[in-house]
Simulated assay, not measured.
Amino acid sequence: MLRKLDNKNMGRSDLGWLQSIFHFSFANYYNRNNMNFGVLRVINDDLVKANTGFEMHPHRDMEIISYVVDGELNHGDTIGNKNTITRGHVQYMSAGTGISHTEHNYGDTTARFLQIWLLPNEKGLTPNYGDYRFKWEDRKNKWLQIVSSVKGDVPIKINQDANIYVLELDKDRKIDFKVGEGRQSYLVQIEGSSEINNIVLNDKDALEIVEEDIIIKSKSTSHILIIEMKKTKKMEE
């Protein structure tokens, strides 16, 4: 089963310094029929103006991944971590019993990043942080796995049966992705446009995939992210 989500129909927020697209209910955007997709609770596509950002704020019992599309993202938290990541790099935070952090753009240009939240497989875990600077060429016309469960062997591991892959596919190239029985995936067309099993996705659109293999045909250079996970039901209100 495939279901396209047009970015024009997603939630939106404009705070001046921050412009966001909400794939799921978040902040001032509420839709009881769009709370989550399996264990995937949040994808926010954020634009943060230069020399602005999120001040210190708390989280708990959530696996949080930030994937930078453009610009730079600076992280600081209450367990002593400080770091800056740029295009194609990934930051991970397991909020567990509680952690507070800041996220700023100290660069000269607007930063764009995807903020992804997944529900953990258990509550009350010890807070943890990590980041990794993946080489851009490692996702060129092939899938690069950037996140796995703790049983996986990639640099960033989360407390959930979920995997995240990224890809930059040149125009007119094809690639497949398998979503087997008992699994589902959420695909984000970060940049460019593509045709997936006869469904056209443009910049910032998304696609829900349940137990169905897909073939991606790139209509223009396509930057794509997929979150693959165990098939589960949507939350109730």
Results as ranks from 00 to 15, higher is better:
Met1Gln: 12
Leu5Tyr: 12
Met10Leu: 15
Arg12His: 15
Ser20Met: 09
Ile21Leu: 15
Phe24Gly: 07
Phe26Lys: 01
Asn31Glu: 01
Arg32Phe: 10
Arg32Leu: 11
Asn33Ala: 06
Met35Ile: 13
Phe37Trp: 04
Arg41Ser: 05
Lys49Ser: 11
Asp61Lys: 14
Glu63Asn: 08
Tyr67Ala: 04
Tyr67Leu: 03
Gly71Asp: 04
His75Gly: 02
Ile79Cys: 00
Ile79Pro: 00
Gly80Lys: 05
Gly80Ser: 00
Gly80Leu: 03
Asn81Asp: 11
Ile85His: 04
Gln91His: 08
Tyr92Trp: 13
Tyr92Asp: 13
Gly96Leu: 00
Gly96Phe: 00
Thr97Pro: 04
Gly98Ser: 08
Thr102Met: 10
Thr102Pro: 10
Tyr106Asp: 06
Gly107His: 01
Phe113Gln: 13
Leu118Thr: 04
Gly124Arg: 09
Asn128Lys: 15
Tyr129Gly: 09
Tyr129Met: 06
Glu137Arg: 07
Glu137Lys: 14
Lys140Glu: 15
Trp143Phe: 05
Trp143His: 01
Gly152Lys: 07
Ile156Trp: 03
Ile156Met: 06
Ile156Asp: 05
Asp161Gly: 00
Ile164Gly: 03
Tyr165Leu: 06
Arg173Glu: 15
Ile175Arg: 07
Ile175Pro: 11
Phe177Leu: 02
Lys178Phe: 12
Leu187Arg: 03
Ile190Gly: 01
Ser193Lys: 13
Asn197Leu: 12
Val200Gln: 09
Asn202Thr: 13
Asp205Gly: 05
Ala206Cys: 13
Ala206Lys: 00
Glu211Asn: 10
Ile216Asp: 02
Ser218Thr: 05
Thr221His: 10
Ile224Trp: 06
Ile227Ala: 06
Met229Arg: 07
Met229Pro: 07
Glu236Asp: 13
